[in-house]
Every structure is written in structure tokens, then in C-alpha cells.
């Protein structure tokens, strides 16, 4: 009845043009959220439709695509999205960060520094950093226009008054190129410093909220803070239990119901390539067995 003949990378050319125009304006105005006519995608809103639309508009036959969710290539949603592009664009995919030209991500920035040839595409649930202070788009749009970011500082300061520190641990707001306050998507604040002066182009897609924004390479990205409460990233007491890396973001894995736990790299590609004897290392095997 229906013959499913879809265009390269699923989207029709007119939609791609519309998205491409929005991406260009986004790059021209770093951190500003460009409204775009987000389409219904064959995956649910909130599951990466914004990132998928941006990736589909950017992707070409020569690209090598990597898709991660929570830092991992093998999480179910990453697998589903990678499969979508393998099917609709027949592009080469990889799990190796360094090999990829386009990386679509949810909630993490890879540990390995990105390079000039790469584009990092973030999936964004709520693009508006002021949304939780002011739910109305009409109001937040005015606040951005007038650079009225005092409310955000008040909120962060209230945290300090109540808890002794800023209690925002992910989706930690940043100031881009000295103008727009931007939501970096729900990455842990651990990843925030990687956005600053990054070699790669960073694109953000929010499908349900119909917004695209961008950080060009070598752009100043500053996490909001106070002189007496400077921005600090999470620190982990122990190294990764599988590869021994320190200074990386770790996932906590609960091993049993008696308090047994281990901490392992959230970035699976980084972890695999940093294990002393590769992925067949003893502890990795033990862990797999424990599961």
C-alpha cells in the first residue's frame, strides 16, 4: 500500500534547507536559540528528534558518524539512532571518537578532545536556560533580548544560601561569547569546560521545543559562577575500575544489595581504548561475569 521510499537521511530537501538556514543563523549568533519548524520524526519527541534533524541536515555520504547516549555507544537509544542513519543515509558509523566526523550525543561530551574537522550534535530536551525560573517563552525571550540574566544569578545564589554551594550539577548554564546565556543540554557540569575554546563546531537541536543553537569553534564559553563561589567540576575519589583512568566522568554501577559498587568510565570508547590490555582485560571480564 505504502512504498517507503525516503530521501537520503530521511528528511526531504525542503526541510533540510529550512534546518540548514537555521543552523547558519545559529552559528552567526552563538548561544542564541533560533526557532525552526521542527518536523515530526519517526522517533518520539524527547528522544533526540532535534539532534536527529540537525544530524540529518548536516550529514553527507563521506561522513563517519558516531552516536552516544550517556557517553556510551551501546545504550539502546544510541543504537536506535545509529541504526536510523545506517538505514536512511548508509553512512559509515564508528564508535571511535577520533574517527568520527559527526558525533551525535545525549548527555555527554567525549573525554577525548575534539578536533577541527568534527561536528558535535547535542540532543536537547529544554533549550531555554531560564525555563525553570520563568516558564513563559514570551518572558524569557525578552530577558535574552535585554540581557537580563540577573534572575539566573539569583537562583544560583539561593542555592548557595540554602545548601552552601551551587546545587546545579547538570545542564549547568553557560555564558557564550559574552552575550547569550545558554543551556548546554543535560551534560554533567563536569563536561562544561570542554565546550570552551573547543576545536570542533558544536550544534544543539531541540526538536519538541523547535530550537537550534550553536557554538562555533574557539568560542569563549564560561560557566556562570561567583567570585566567592567559583565554578567547580565533579571529582571522583577513585579511578575507573576497568581502565584506571582518572579525571574522567564515571558511572556508578551497583554490584549487589550489600553496598557493593564500582565506578567505571561513562565514555565507553575512551574506557576501551585505555584498558591496559584492551577490552579483554581481567577486571572487565570479571565485571561482565558479575552481571
Amino acid at each position: 500500500m505504502i512504498s517507503a521510499a525516503y530521501n537520503f537521511a530521511y528528511l526531504d530537501e525542503q526541510t533540510k534547507r529550512m534546518i540548514r538556514r537555521a543552523i547558519l543563523k545559529a552559528v552567526a549568533i552563538p548561544g542564541y536559540q533560533v526557532p525552526f519548524a521542527s518536523r515530526e520524526m519517526p522517533m518520539p519527541y524527547g528522544w533526540g528528534t532535534g539532534g536527529v534533524q540537525v544530524t540529518a541536515a548536516v550529514l553527507g555520504p563521506d561522513d563517519v558518524l558516531k552516536v552516544i547516549d550517556q557517553g556510551a555507544d551501546d545504550t539502546t537509544n544510541a543504537v536506535a539512532i545509529r541504526g536510523f542513519f545506517e538505514k536512511t543515509a548508509r553512512v559509515r558509523t564508528t564508535t571511535a571518537t577520533a574517527e568520527a566526523t559527526v558525533i551525535q550525543t545525549r548527555h555527554r561530551i567525549p573525554e577525548e578532545p575534539l578536533t577541527a574537522g568534527q561536528i558535535l550534535v547535542y540532543q536537547v530536551p529544554i533549550p531555554e536556560p531560564l525555563r525553570f525560573l520563568e516558564p513563559r517563552e514570551t518572558e524569557t525571550r525578552k530577558m535574552h533580548a535585554l540581557t537580563e540574566y540577573g534572575l539566573m544569578h539569583v537562583k544560583l545564589y539561593e542555592d548557595i544560601a540554602r545548601h552552601g554551594h551551587i546545587a546545579t550539577t547538570y545542564a549547568y548554564p553557560v555564558h557564550v561569547a559574552g552575550r547569550y546565556v545558554m543551556d548546554p543540554s543535560p551534560i554533567p557540569k563536569f563536561d562544561n569546560p570542554k565546550m570552551n575554546d573547543c576545536e570542533a563546531l558544536q550544534l544543539f537541536g531541540a526538536g519538541r521545543e523547535k530550537r537550534i543553537y550553536a557554538i562555533p569553534p574557539h568560542t569563549e564559553v564560561v560557566s556562570l559562577d561567583f567570585e566567592d563561589h567559583p565554578f567547580r567540576v565533579q571529582e571522583f575519589a577513585e579511578p575507573c575500575a576497568l581502565c584506571g583512568s582518572t579525571g574522567v566522568y564515571l558511572d556508578e554501577v551497583i554490584l549487589d544489595d550489600r553496598g557493593g559498587r564500582m565506578f567505571v568510565c561513562s565514555d565507553t570508547d575512551y574506557c576501551t581504548s585505555h584498558r591496559p590490555s584492551g577490552p579483554d582485560d581481567q577486571s572487565a571480564a570479571e565485571w561482565e561475569n558479575a552481571r
Binding site: 515530526e40 518520539p44 528522544w47 552552601g164 557540569k189 556508578e252
Partner: peptide
């Protein structure tokens, strides 16, 4: 409802990176 169901149901997706960030903070506090 397509938007609403997507976003409500996206809570099923893994959030363990963000949750770990919160966990670390609550433990520290």
C-alpha cells in the same frame, strides 16, 4: 499529545549521567 507523550515518556531513557551528578552532590552535602 505527540509532543507531550514523547517528553513524558523520555523519562524512560537512561539518565544515569545526570543522576550520578546529583548523587555525588547529595552524598557530599
Amino acid at each position: 499529545n505527540v509532543q507531550a507523550t514523547g517528553f513524558v515518556e523520555h523519562l524512560k531513557l537512561p539518565h544515569y549521567v545526570d543522576f550520578q551528578a546529583e548523587l555525588e552532590l547529595v552524598r557530599r552535602m
